[in-house]
Design a protein around this nucleic acid. Structure first.
Lengths: 351, 351
DNA sequence: TTGTAAGCGTTATCAT
DNA sequence: ATGATAACGCTTACAA
């Protein structure tokens, strides 16, 4: 049945000797319409090969049923998990998802935001680029009360809400765990401090040290993009130190840097965790492949995505008022694995 | 400047004492319009805080500048890379991306397809669910000549085009490489044969064996979902065999199964590659973490995504006619790493 | 180079 | 419970 002309509600109306208005209502299952006519309308629609015109509907009703997603990059384990969670929720609630990536560049982020604005998304889900400092490009949304939900890499703004994990506490717990394993010279591989995820983790790390009266030797906090190369470089730096000046533990703000740091150190004959214990962050698949398996923080992008989308949609539906809340913090769990198990007496193990 | 009423082209027209038509043209930079008026119009638009209404424009012009993407699941390394490549191309060409996932279920895929159809996407990018058998749900697109580009997990249809890698040849080359390394009892961990990616790899594998007069012992081809659990199970099965009945090489249709199979075998004291050589497929990040590093096939989701999107958009722009082509096959490269290097004389190495 | 006017397919408002 | 009619904001023949 290859239709060539678009079938409109008028065609259905004519077909059934009804008005377009009735058809429109019937199609949406409005309770104003007689149950029988409703059925007739829906049957006719199917028979005629009708498909609703989203544009006309959006134009008239002034809502798009579309959420815009701004991400730093699409090809990241965390982002794709978050997207999956968002899609799960959104599709169930009848919302579409338009996606974009800034490639960590604030300029592209601005463009993407503008695009989303022109596309009249009903709401925005945002994880910020590495170098975003101001939120000016979101002002159009704030001004028009288009709800903005930041997730993971967030920023504070009274007209928005954040969905995060408690990075501070998670990092604090990781560090405390390393200390409990007897580590006293703990090094931290951190990310760009503009982003809450990394600055919070650093704070948690430092506070745990302070609380246990441990020093933070010079250069034991290094900032990088936490790539695999950065991990390898950190290892080179450690190897360049005289053995007694080396850290006895490394806490990396992501798993990638931790794992590639470990690989390089292992190749140099360093024993993990005996000589240097390791902990990462994210619970990436690679953390279960490296030997010894990497202690890390489980960090469910899927959950964060679901939560962010659900809150946004609930707000749009008027079920809750997002603007009352400042931030939603999800549980993050320390997963202790062999890379940090120095005391055999400590029997905490995964699962 | 918090606007509350939407600014339309009529507002700009009134402001400048022009007609709406002129403003519409000026906004698009039409060469019909005087350069000065064009500038005036664009300045006024900015000053008044105008944003174009995509719906009205789409409604009138009957194109959405939107591409729909159907994926099996968003949280997969390959899919997210492909999406990144698509976004890269699409955003440069002024197209938006609406995404969806079938979660490997044909029923959800059907729903998603219908949704995309109602949303009047200009074109479709599709990677099929595991259990999709018929293409009926794409008929509406075929009938209306809405271009459909399959990528990675493809199907044949005269009104569509496929973007793939040459899975057959890649698998053939992997197998040949293992044979050249002296392996004679090669096992294959494969995926669902409904999908070209897995059936083609199996064919390549079998043909390479045949060509070298090697047998395929019973149960040396196993079908699974290629998850980490499936990899572990394959290892258990191998260990359950008497040592002289075990394979001396495993070629897995993805890296995940290969890596987790290796981990289990290593834990049982099997030497890799000496006792069992390994090769995977995908060049996932984990392939560089496992020790020894995994021989695999580099399989750029990013490239596939870019190519698929570029061809689709070129077709939409009338630059090329997609329907003339059947399939585009991208280069896939065998990356030999330590997991399959049995002959020290063989100096082929990565990079 | 600019203007006029019709129409894209819905939904909202007001009637009936 | 249904109908008539006017928007929604833009594009595009056609006219000037």
């Amino acid at each position: 049945m290859a239709e060539d002309k678009e079938v409109t509600i008028y065609d259905i109306a004519k077909h059934l000797n009804l008005s377009a208005a009735t058809v429109s209502r019937g199609l949406k299952g409005s309770s104003l319409i007689n149950k029988n006519t409703r059925k007739k309308i829906q049957d006719a629609a199917k028979a005629l090969g009708y498909r609703s015109n989203t544009f006309a509907s959006n134009l008239r009703s002034k809502q798009s049923l579309t959420l815009g997603v701004l991400t730093p990059r699409l090809n990241s384990h965390f982002v794709s998990a978050a997207l999956a969670g968002m899609e799960d929720v959104a599709s169930k609630e009848g919302y579409r998802l338009i996606i974009s990536q800034s490639l960590e560049e604030v300029e592209k982020e601005k463009l993407n935001a503008q695009n989303m604005f022109n596309n009249r998304v009903d709401g925005l889900l945002v994880s910020l680029a590495a170098n975003t400092e101001s939120l000016e490009h979101f002002e159009p949304f704030f001004n028009r009360r288009i709800p903005v939900v930041f997730f993971d890499r967030v920023a504070n703004h009274p007209d928005s809400i954040s969905v995060v994990i408690d990075n501070y506490t998670a990092a604090y717990n990781v560090t405390k765990h390393l200390i409990e394993q007897g580590c006293t010279r703990i090094m931290h591989l951190g990310g760009n401090l503009l982003r809450n995820v990394y600055s919070d983790r650093l704070r948690g790390f430092k506070d745990a040290l302070k609380e246990h009266d441990l020093p933070l030797p010079a250069k034991f906090h290094q900032v990088s993009n936490l790539s695999s190369e950065a991990g390898t470089q950190a290892a080179e730096w450690i190897l360049s130190l005289p053995p007694d000046k080396r850290p006895d533990a490394v806490f990396s703000a992501n798993d990638t840097a931790a794992v590639f740091c470990m690989l390089r150190l292992k190749a140099a004959g360093i024993k993990i965790p005996e000589q240097i214990a390791f902990a990462g962050f994210n619970n990436d698949p690679i953390s279960l492949v490296i030997e010894p398996n990497l202690t890390t923080v489980d960090y469910s992008g899927y959950n964060i995505g679901q939560t962010a989308a659900k809150n946004l949609i609930n707000h749009l539906k008027g079920v809750i008022d997002i603007f009352m809340t400042d931030a939603i913090s999800l549980r993050a769990e320390l997963i202790v694995r062999a890379s940090s198990m120095r005391k055999t007496s400590d029997v905490r193990r995964e699962k």
